[in-house]
């Protein structure tokens, strides 16, 4: 018994001594070799949002900070940082130009929830839109629209996307940072990151002819062109069978939204803040 206890004590002491020795030595060396450059990188890392979402294309905030310090990136490379954060980064880097960047948010360009869209097959398998899309473009009648399996909501590092009970993503614009990870993950291109100031957009991505859209969805863009004709600013144009809003011309008067026969044209109401799911 005594032998066991003493073995435990010596073993612990040995491990502890060796561990402590290396810990102290490593810290001492790290302190000695720390340079001004390292300090700047650390400072920049702290100024970045710190979510390590990778939306800038780097491995994480520390990698972007390194690129910033080397001058290989600009503060705006971080698509997530707020304007004040970018301002601070620019100050830390000694950049004098005022940086202005529009706030961007993700918008869902499909309104075909389960109750109003046709389904041609049941998909059984991994519950991920990317997997479902690989199998004959998924079970939805519309091969362009949202599959509703919530891949976007799972890749969002900010918890800004939730799935509505009817199976459409809902973006909480207060939480959305416009990082674009959902846009990249969506196999259908349904989610797009737009300037937050763009108030009118087409809530459909189907490029199919109107008759085909009608047969699978009640709220898709049928390419009738009414919006193009009623717009007083000529801000809407047709790309094939799909209407497209030019945000630079749109004044958000709302006429196209009112006249759209399928409600595909959408306007964001400023007081609502959150896009309401149908």
């Amino acid at each position: 018994m005594g032998a066991t206890v003493s073995t435990i004590v010596t073993a612990t002491a040995t491990m502890g001594a060796v561990g402590a020795f290396f810990a102290i030595a490593l810290v001492a060396l790290a302190k000695r070799t720390a340079s001004a450059e390292d300090e700047q990188i650390e400072l920049l890392t702290n100024l970045l949002p710190g979510n390590n979402c990778g939306a800038c294309g780097m491995a994480g905030c520390a990698a972007l900070a390194q690129a910033l310090a080397k001058g290989e990136a600009v503060p705006q490379s971080c698509p997530v940082a707020s304007e004040s954060q970018i301002q601070k980064l620019a100050e830390a880097l000694g950049l004098t130009e005022t940086v202005h960047r529009e706030r961007r948010v993700a918008r869902v360009r499909c309104g075909g929830h389960r109750a109003i869209s046709q389904w041609r097959a049941d998909y059984e398998g991994v519950l991920d839109c990317r997997a479902a899309d690989l199998v004959g473009k998924g079970g939805k009648g519309c091969v362009f629209g949202c599959l509703g399996l919530g891949t976007c909501s799972r890749v969002c590092p900010y918890g800004a996307i939730t799935m509505s009970p009817t199976g459409l993503p809902v973006v909480n614009e207060a939480l959305c940072t416009g990082c674009g990870l959902c846009e990249a993950a969506c196999p259908r291109g349904v989610i797009a990151v737009m300037d937050a100031s763009q108030e009118v957009f087409v809530r459909c991505v189907s490029t199919a002819p109107g008759k085909q859209v009608r047969s699978v969805c009640e709220v898709g863009c049928i390419g009738c062109g009414i919006c193009v004709r009623v717009c007083p600013e000529n801000a809407v144009e047709m790309l094939g069978h799909l209407a497209c809003v030019d945000p630079n011309r749109c004044t958000a008067c709302g006429i196209c939204v009112e006249k759209c026969p399928t409600d595909a044209m959408q306007i964001i109401l400023e007081d609502a803040g959150v896009l309401t799911a149908v």
């Binding site: 073993a11 040995t14 491990m15 290396f22 490593l26």
Partner: peptide, 22 residues
Amino acid sequence: PLGLGFLQNMLFILVIAALVQF
């Protein structure tokens, strides 16, 4: 000498990790 041969794997990993850090 201390009869702690059973510690070798753990201790070796610890030392190697520290050396790689250096």
